[in-house]
Simulated scan of single mutants.
Amino acid sequence: MTSSTFRIGGERSVRRLGFGAMRLPTEPGPARETSIAVARRAVDLGVTLIDTAHLYGWGANEELLAEALYPYPDDLLIATKVGVAPPNPPHDAEICGRPDFLRDQVEQGLRRLRVERLELLQLHRIDPKVPLADQLGTLRELQIAGKIGHLGLSEITVAELDEARQIIDVVSVQNRYSMLDREHEAVLDACAAAGIAFLPWRPVYPAVSEATAEIAAVAAELGATAAQVSLAWLLDRSPVVLPIPGTGTLGHLEENVAAASLRLSDDQWRRLDRLQPR
């Protein structure tokens, strides 16, 4: 049976089914209170990997998690991301990998999350205008300085992963991937071969909104939902896969976490694996 945990960077053990905080509303009021309750409930349910980013509310998401969870449990790993500049009218938000900008965002992340070290810091996007060695070299310097524990990447190709591994120790990759969206299959395979954590974002869409007859059939056989079947399939896909489904409601959170206990038979997994990605 596939392990329910994974050691990121060979060191930090987390439960493989994580939580994506992107969908948590951060504006003051009842919605924010619900967000805090959801984050706390995730930890109560045993989630030990939470994903956030500077981009999510331009720091507001990180601040929300700190309000909800600080001081953090010893086994909780909060992963954040840097590398996107906020809108500056008339300019829209844009990818930015300038060394000074990355350093500033790391410092902001440390303050907002109230920590001395970002345990897992991922480059949100590679900036095509800045040499990769400059972007990753900057993050490596901050890692050596003790401000970053482990480094990862997001939305990359196999070639970019190979190049990055010549510069830093890549411990995680966060690409879009799900049962019906396998554009980055080769990247997942490369991560599996290297023992690198693969964090699929948007892990249940479009399997929920466009559930096929086969997904519905397997869900009925297991007394589960299409989302749970999708997460179970991902967990069985490879031991390096760490799904991070996001939600702003307690009900969906509990449904997602319960998927970690769902067991697909070999036949059910093969039937789902044969589905044609959208």
Rank of each mutant, 00 (worst) to 15 (best):
I95H: 01
L110R: 09
E116N: 05
F101E: 03
E119D: 14
G109I: 03
G109E: 09
Q108D: 12
P89D: 07
P86S: 02
P87S: 04
H124Q: 09
D127A: 05
R125E: 04
L113I: 11
R112D: 12
L102Y: 12
D100C: 06
R112S: 11
P99T: 08
L118H: 11
D92N: 14
F101C: 05
R111F: 06
L120W: 09
K129G: 06
L110N: 06
G97I: 03
H124W: 05
V106W: 01
H124L: 07
P89L: 06
A93G: 13
D104A: 15
L113K: 10
R114D: 04
R125N: 08
R103C: 08
E107P: 03
N88Q: 14
P86I: 02
P99W: 06
R103F: 10
L120A: 10
D104M: 13
L102G: 11
D92S: 14
P90S: 12
I95G: 00
R125S: 10
L118Y: 13
C96T: 00
I126Q: 03
R103V: 12
C96F: 00
N88S: 14
P99R: 08
R98Y: 01
E94Q: 14
D100F: 07
R117K: 13
R98C: 00
Q108W: 07
L110P: 07
L110T: 05
R117W: 03
L118F: 13
P99I: 07
L120R: 07
P89K: 05
R112Q: 15
I126N: 03
P87I: 03
E119I: 06
A93F: 14
R112V: 12
L120H: 11
K129W: 10
H91N: 13
C96H: 04
K129I: 01
G109N: 13
R114Y: 06
N88W: 00
R125Y: 09
I126P: 02
D92Y: 11
E94C: 09
D127F: 02
V106Q: 02
P128Q: 10
N88P: 00
R125V: 04
E94H: 15
D92R: 15
H91I: 06
G109T: 08
E116A: 04
E116S: 09
D127W: 02
P89Q: 05
D127L: 02
H91Q: 15
A93M: 15
I126S: 04
P87A: 04
D104Q: 13
V106H: 02
Q108M: 13
C96I: 00
R125H: 14
L118R: 09
F101T: 03
P90V: 11
A93Y: 08
D92F: 14
R98N: 01
L123N: 00
L102I: 11
N88I: 05
F101S: 04
E94T: 09
D104W: 15
Q108R: 15
P86R: 03
L120F: 12
H91K: 13
